[in-house]
């Protein structure tokens, strides 16, 4: 198979802490591989190493046939990078940002302008082209950031948490763009904290935890390993919890988990919801909340690693960075 990205045994240490502890990664040409993991799992470190921004302490990687350590300039000719934090210039306008990048990539002034106009149009930013980035919404910035990484028509694209901090609408817009890119034949390495995002975009998913790869496979395979959906019940009266737990155990065949008055149990079949509702009704018990949801990242981790996700980095997610999708709960307890 033709691999666009091939990394072996990547190690990166910062003092005593190990950010990456021997990671292998393979991305076939023309495919999207999603790297899924909580903060501090080593996702960004991996992207920074592969994009030649950081030297690994051990291991090596080949991008598009060129070694990242021996021939970084040729690697940079092939890649585009969209970082976690918008890497565009706040004081310049959208058009100026893209023209600057075109000029740096060796386009003539006229070609750089044409390319910028073309991309702004494609990303629905044409009307805002002359405004400084400081006036852009979060979703617009991220789209401009994506446009900026595409000026040079990169064959291989690194998207480091492209939708972290975006509202659901802006997230959907970014997803649409990524889907179009992939349809056009780009290879994409995507990192994300959101299972749903990896599920939507990636051909295969690699799960990172504490600087190691803990699982990989197609989204469907991983989901089966995680165990499908979860039934969640919050009894109205806390005193009813033991009785409701007994009903759940009986109907689902699993021992329910309880946390602050909420019971969860794997729902192997969707009909479990109505069965539970009927039983509660019949027993005269009421619930404030009763429903199915997809496994959260915590539960994916629990299932794949046998432990809860690593504690988030020193920087806690800002309130607006909280994912809105119900199946993508942050790794914060």
């Amino acid at each position: 198979m033709d691999y666009a990205i091939r990394a072996e045994g990547l190690v990166k240490k910062y003092g005593d802490s190990t950010a990456l502890d021997g990671v292998d990664l393979e991305v076939p040409a023309g495919k999207v591989v999603g790297v899924l993991g909580p903060n501090g799992a080593g996702k960004t470190t991996t992207v920074r190493i592969l994009a030649t921004l950081l030297r690994p302490d051990a291991g090596h990687a080949v991008i598009g046939g060129h070694d990242i350590a021996k021939d970084p300039v040729r690697v940079r000719q092939l890649i585009g990078l969209t970082g976690q934090y918008a890497s565009v210039d706040e004081t310049l306008s959208g058009a100026e940002n893209l023209v600057l990048i075109g000029r740096l990539l060796g386009l003539s002034r006229r070609d750089a302008k044409a390319r910028a106009a073309e991309l702004l149009e494609k990303f629905s930013l044409a009307e805002a082209a002359k405004r400084p980035i400081a006036t852009f919404s979060g979703g617009m910035r991220r789209r401009l950031d994506l446009a900026a990484s595409l000026v040079g028509r990169p064959r291989i694209l690194f998207l480091d948490e492209p939708t972290t901090g975006l509202d659901p609408h802006a997230r959907q817009e970014v997803w649409d763009v990524v889907k179009r890119l992939v349809a056009d034949g780009s290879t994409v390495l995507l990192t994300t904290q959101y299972l749903e995002e990896a599920d939507q975009l990636a051909d295969s998913i690699t799960v990172f935890d504490k600087g190691r790869k803990v699982a990989e496979g197609r989204p469907g395979e991983l989901k089966r390993r995680v165990g499908g959906q979860i039934l969640q019940v919050r009894p109205s009266m806390p005193a009813d919890v033991p009785q409701v737990a007994a009903i759940l155990a009986e109907l689902s065949g699993h021992t329910p988990a309880e946390e602050s008055g909420v019971l969860t149990v794997p729902a192997d079949e969707p009909l479990l919801v109505s069965a539970v509702a009927r039983r509660l009704d019949g027993a005269g018990l009421s619930a404030d909340e009763l429903g199915l949801r997809l496994p959260s990242l915590d539960e994916v981790f629990l299932a794949l690693t046998g432990h809860a996700p690593a504690a988030p980095d020193a920087e806690p997610a800002a309130p607006d960075a909280e994912p809105a999708a119900p199946d993508a709960e942050p790794a914060v307890a």
Partner: peptide
């Protein structure tokens, strides 16, 4: 390429000397 998003897929030959 005519499409805005299409990557430049013109293949670069494998060089032995690193680019500077």
């Amino acid at each position: 390429a005519t499409d805005t998003l299409a990557p430049d897929t013109a293949s670069t030959p494998a060089h032995t000397k690193p680019a500077r």
